[in-house]
Amino acid sequence: MSTDRSRPDLDDTTVEGLGKLSEALETIEQARGQLYGFHQHSGKADLLLQDAVELLRKAGHTQLADDLDRDLVGRNVIADRWTFQIVEDYDATYWSVFRALDERARTELADGDRHVYEARMKQRERTKGHPHHEAGPVLEE
């Protein structure tokens, strides 16, 4: 890693390209978080559904409870998949590949430095010498 994370040795187009790649990865991370939220919400809904089935059965609505239990409790959310399988497939076939290629790009082009675009932005936008505008770790004053 360079001591100056704004990497003055790199051309602007490379830095901009790495910045867009980083932004894309951050968006993928958000999508993955939403997918995990979907997984957790679906699982919670299934547990609540089971409680509803039990209460409806207890209240004497046996046919409806049986239909809900048979047709909905534990049902695949898409063909052949529960939500944990969707998460696992996403991680294995897309997320992990995206992360690996992002790391490759950073390693090949910027010696592994992350957020070079943002480091340059910080250098441009901060007020040098002003409190709370310090360069911070491994950025040059």
Score class of each variant (00 low, 15 high):
1 M>A: 15
2 S>V: 09
2 S>C: 11
2 S>L: 06
4 D>S: 04
6 S>W: 01
8 P>N: 08
12 D>F: 04
14 T>E: 05
17 G>F: 10
18 L>D: 03
19 G>Y: 00
20 K>T: 06
27 T>E: 08
27 T>F: 07
29 E>Y: 05
31 A>R: 13
34 Q>H: 10
35 L>T: 09
35 L>G: 02
37 G>H: 04
40 Q>T: 07
43 G>Q: 05
45 A>S: 12
46 D>G: 12
47 L>W: 00
47 L>R: 05
48 L>A: 10
48 L>R: 10
48 L>Q: 07
48 L>I: 04
49 L>A: 08
51 D>Y: 03
51 D>E: 11
53 V>M: 01
56 L>G: 12
57 R>E: 06
58 K>A: 15
58 K>Q: 07
63 Q>Y: 08
63 Q>G: 13
67 D>A: 08
72 L>D: 11
75 R>V: 02
77 V>E: 00
79 A>W: 08
80 D>L: 03
82 W>H: 15
85 Q>C: 10
85 Q>V: 06
85 Q>R: 12
88 E>D: 07
90 Y>P: 06
90 Y>N: 12
91 D>C: 07
93 T>C: 07
97 V>M: 00
98 F>M: 09
101 L>A: 02
101 L>R: 13
101 L>P: 01
102 D>N: 06
105 A>L: 09
109 L>T: 04
113 D>Q: 12
114 R>Y: 04
121 M>I: 12
126 R>Q: 05
126 R>A: 10
127 T>R: 15
129 G>M: 13
133 H>E: 08
134 E>R: 11
137 P>C: 01
138 V>H: 14
